[in-house]
Simulated assay, not measured.
Amino acid sequence: MAKKSNKQSNTGMDGTDFPDDLLQTQQAWNATYRALAAPRPRKCHGAAPPSARTPSTVWPALVGAG
């Protein structure tokens, strides 16, 4: 008895064997993945967080002590 295999041959297949909408969706997915995976520069400019830059005249009003 021959051993069964779940492998299928794709002999004779080329790019035209797939529907256009599937190819377009795959291309869009690949472009999105590349964009998300690309390294992005960090915004490390050494500034203090916004709360530390709040003027002292505004800070008491923000915390309700004014």
Rank of each mutant, 00 (worst) to 15 (best):
41 P>S: 11
28 A>H: 07
19 P>D: 07
55 P>Y: 01
3 K>I: 13
46 G>F: 00
18 F>W: 07
60 P>H: 02
64 G>M: 01
12 G>T: 03
34 R>I: 04
42 R>I: 00
1 M>D: 12
22 L>G: 06
44 C>R: 12
51 S>T: 06
38 A>R: 11
30 N>K: 15
37 A>G: 06
31 A>M: 08
3 K>W: 08
26 Q>E: 14
62 L>I: 05
56 S>H: 05
63 V>A: 02
22 L>M: 12
17 D>T: 04
5 S>L: 08
44 C>F: 03
15 G>L: 04
42 R>Y: 01
36 L>W: 05
18 F>R: 07
24 Q>F: 04
20 D>A: 14
42 R>W: 01
21 D>V: 06
13 M>G: 09
12 G>L: 01
58 V>R: 09
44 C>M: 11
30 N>S: 11
20 D>M: 12
11 T>S: 11
33 Y>S: 10
5 S>M: 05
32 T>K: 13
58 V>I: 14
57 T>M: 06
21 D>S: 15
15 G>M: 04
37 A>H: 15
13 M>R: 14
33 Y>H: 09
52 A>C: 01
21 D>K: 14
50 P>S: 02
9 S>E: 06
50 P>F: 02
17 D>H: 06
58 V>N: 09
36 L>D: 10
49 P>T: 04
15 G>W: 00
3 K>D: 14
25 T>R: 15
16 T>A: 09
1 M>G: 14
35 A>Y: 05
45 H>D: 13
55 P>H: 12
49 P>H: 03
30 N>W: 02
49 P>W: 01
29 W>C: 07
5 S>C: 06
35 A>N: 13
40 R>E: 08
48 A>M: 09
22 L>K: 14
20 D>C: 06
24 Q>W: 06
43 K>L: 05
8 Q>W: 05
54 T>Q: 10
8 Q>H: 09
53 R>S: 03
22 L>A: 15
19 P>K: 07
19 P>R: 05
57 T>G: 11
37 A>D: 08
50 P>A: 03
41 P>F: 00
22 L>R: 13
6 N>T: 12
60 P>L: 02
24 Q>M: 13
25 T>G: 14
36 L>G: 10
66 G>D: 12
22 L>E: 12
24 Q>S: 12
30 N>I: 04
61 A>K: 14
23 L>V: 13
48 A>L: 05
48 A>Q: 12
27 Q>I: 05
10 N>W: 07
30 N>E: 13
61 A>L: 11
7 K>F: 03
17 D>L: 00
14 D>G: 14
23 L>I: 13
60 P>F: 00
24 Q>H: 10
19 P>M: 02
16 T>R: 13
36 L>V: 07
10 N>D: 12
47 A>V: 07
61 A>D: 14
66 G>S: 10
53 R>L: 03
65 A>G: 03
15 G>P: 00
65 A>N: 08
33 Y>Q: 13
14 D>E: 08
62 L>T: 04
30 N>M: 11
49 P>R: 06
11 T>P: 01
38 A>T: 11
66 G>I: 03
52 A>R: 07
27 Q>T: 09
65 A>E: 06
33 Y>T: 12
59 W>M: 15
37 A>C: 09
3 K>P: 03
60 P>K: 04
4 K>P: 03
59 W>I: 04
10 N>E: 09
